[in-house]
Write a protein that binds this DNA or RNA. Structure first.
Length: 382
DNA sequence: AATTCGATCAACCGCTCACCG
DNA sequence: TCGGTGAGCGGTTGATCGAAT
């Protein structure tokens, strides 16, 4: 157990606080190339002055390609309320039922308004909450209002016209969330929780049962922002990445000299209005509701992918990669810093590091909808 | 226009779990 | 079986932003 735990950020002079675009880019680039088999070693290898924990969190909660971001739909909120009633503060489990949403995000949403909505005391506030504010969460208003009947405990009311959630397990009062034992947790007949339509994500294979077990499944040992496969992120999480990790890599990441703070994300976002050149048909309004992420045409994806990779300097061939990959990911024991150019000057050298990999897109098992990437990165507000 | 207050969210902290030797 | 290590989870906090005053 926790004994002998290595000191974290604070104790070893690592960076803390908000991530800079450079750090984000570095992390993304690194994971694209090598995956994240070892979070602890990742920051060092990627040249990040962060602890692995921090990197993991950043990736999971913010940079992961399949994140929906954007507002929670009324359906999602309702699902959260119901799931919370069933699972309690098992945010990760709840998150696993809401593809594209992170446990942290759900936790925040719950603590900031859903909880108030559910609790009698917060009922009024919920209504008052319509005064709303904030840039995001517009759906809240929609979900709010009178619909906020105190929801002591989610009873699997199929009455929810918007959700076909089917909770077959005890919806009885004793399902007091926080007191739920692990066993009780396991006993939940989650398999019968069929599937949540609004979660969909165009993944027919998405199922509650699977999610519960594989949960926030990491995106395999490697992730490609440019995967061309049509499969959804969910699918990738349920089907483990191929044992054979990406071929090796030996070149440095080559990132174009672009303005990280704004241009880059505009590019990634495919925002024709701001990007140097038109890149995709993506609907600018999309982020408001990620439910349709990944619903773009295949051809659009492809050229978007290619374009994006070129922009990021991620366009390359398999020959570019020669670092050996082992079952645990990259065999880094003696491989040089994959981003050596960044070491001396993390920022200025960042974009000059070598050709990065586009190879992952060739690999089966790393299907990441390009649109998901645009969606998530788009929300970075950079 | 300036200040205050409340809401939101990203990130950190500390713990537990799971795996491995 | 036990101890060490890394990953993951849940709670909490601090910074930021927008609305209200």
């Amino acid at each position: 157990m926790g004994k002998g735990r290595a000191p974290c950020c604070a104790k070893v002079g690592l960076n803390k606080g908000s991530w800079t675009p450079e750090e984000d880019m570095r992390l993304i680039a690194y994971i694209q190339k090598y995956g994240h088999a070892n979070w602890r070693a990742l920051p060092k290898q990627a040249g990040l002055l962060r602890c692995g924990k921090s990197c993991r969190l950043r990736w999971i909660n913010y940079l992961r390609p399949d994140l929906k971001r954007g507002n929670f739909t009324a359906e999602e909120e309702e699902a959260i309320i119901k799931l919370h009633g069933l699972l309690g503060n098992k945010w990760s489990k709840i998150a696993s039922c809401l593809p594209g949403r992170t446990d942290n995000e759900i936790k925040n949403v719950w603590n900031t308004h859903l909880k108030k909505r559910v609790s009698p005391a917060g009922e009024e506030r919920g209504a008052a909450g319509s005064k709303k504010k904030k840039k995001k969460k517009t759906t809240k208003a929609a979900a709010g209002g009178g619909a906020e009947a105190p929801l002591p405990l989610p009873s699997p009311s199929p009455s929810s016209s918007t959700t076909t959630t089917n909770f077959s397990s005890g919806d009885s009062g004793e399902q007091q969330s926080n007191n739920m034992s692990k066993e009780a947790d396991d006993e939940l007949d989650l398999e019968n929780f069929e599937m949540m339509p609004m979660l969909d994500v165009d993944d027919p294979s998405f199922g509650f049962g699977t999610l519960v077990d594989t949960a926030p499944a990491p995106y395999g040992s490697a992730v490609s922002v440019s995967a061309s496969a049509a499969t959804s992120p969910c699918a990738s999480s349920t089907s483990p990445p191929p044992a054979s990790a990406p071929p090796g890599v030996d070149d440095l990441l080559v990132l174009p000299e672009i303005d990280m703070g704004h241009e880059l994300w505009s590019i990634i976002d495919g925002d024709a209005a701001e990007a140097p050149a038109p890149r995709c048909q993506r609907n600018p309004a999309e982020p408001t509701n990620g439910a349709d992420a990944g619903s773009h045409g295949a051809e659009g994806k492809e050229w978007w992918l290619e374009d994006l990779e070129r922009e990021l300097g991620l366009w390359g061939t398999v020959e570019d990669y020669q670092y050996p990959m082992g079952p645990q990911g990259l065999l880094v024991a003696d491989h040089p810093d994959p981003l050596p150019a960044m070491v001396d000057d993390p920022v200025s050298c960042y974009f000059q590091a070598g050709p990065a990999s586009a190879v992952l897109q060739e690999l089966p098992g790393y299907p990441v909808p390009a649109t998901a990437v645009t969606g998530s990165i788009n929300q970075m507000g950079l």
